[in-house]
Amino acid sequence: MEYKIVLMYHDVVNELHPKSGFQKVGALQYTLNSRVFFEQVTRFNGDYIVFSFDDGGESFYTVIAPILEHNNQKGIFFISSKYIGTEYFLTKEQIKELDKRGHLIASHSHTHPLIISELSYNEIVNEWKTSKTLLEEIVGHEVTVASVPGGAVSKDVIKAAAEVGIKTLYTSEPTTEVRIEYGIEVIGRFTVSKDTTMEFFDKIVSDKNYRVQLQKRYKRLLLVKKFLGSNYNRFKQLVLKLRG
């Protein structure tokens, strides 16, 4: 089954709001300048594009939502509930207002584990359940959508999400195919980072063959991650620091 093209962002900053969300090197590679984001949203502004955002940084409220709304768009805002109200992250009041303005508030786990798939099954259930409960207390209605932190999806991660009442789970796999596992929709997304040029952004949105190439590259990366295990993230952080 084919779905819309879902784009995965993290934070968007500008001169007035220069910091948002996690400030580690690995996270900052996904932080976009607002001018770039504005160009992307206005360039492809149709019903076949879904804009989604991970972590719960305050830029969801200060920068991203105004740009989306200016272009008659809404976002899916995935929030790691442990960080609500902490520095550079959304407050409860901001989350409540975004929900009232028509944006979709969703879970991104509670603590944003480095590799959620390596937790015990009960720990994974608790990550989803805690986040879901806290977000529902804020918005005043059921939260049934979530995304997998760090892209670390597994059968247990999906099963645990289904167990606590998640109906739709987004991953980091670059695909438009929707599959059903444990009774819930599992939907892929295409990552947009600060290194994504407009040329590559155009190809993600417009070129099906390019999207297929991205999915093949993603599967090769999964093999590397499996081989390196927990060392993968340490190696990635080292490379990013060397790149500056």
Rank of each mutant, 00 (worst) to 15 (best):
L169I: 14
Y232L: 01
K203A: 11
A27V: 01
E15M: 01
K159C: 05
I187G: 02
T133E: 13
Q40K: 07
A106Q: 04
D54I: 05
S230D: 15
L240E: 12
V41Q: 03
T31H: 13
R234T: 12
Y121E: 12
I116W: 01
A106Y: 04
Y210C: 04
V125K: 12
L114C: 01
M1S: 13
E58W: 02
I84G: 06
L28T: 03
V12Q: 04
W128E: 03
F51T: 03
Q29H: 02
T86S: 15
H108V: 11
Y218T: 07
A65Y: 04
Q29S: 10
L223P: 00
T168C: 13
I184A: 08
Q29C: 07
L222A: 12
K216H: 07
E127T: 02
V186G: 03
A27Q: 05
V224Y: 02
E173P: 00
G102E: 08
V143K: 04
D156N: 15
P18E: 09
I84Q: 04
H70N: 09
K132N: 10
T91L: 03
K82A: 07
E15F: 00
G150D: 08
V12N: 05
V139W: 10
Y121N: 01
F89V: 05
E163T: 10
R217P: 00
N72Q: 15
E142Q: 12
Y218G: 09
E93D: 15
R220Q: 14
F53Q: 01
Y3R: 11
I187R: 14
Y218N: 10
S230G: 00
E181L: 15
E15A: 13
Y9S: 01
D156K: 12
T196G: 08
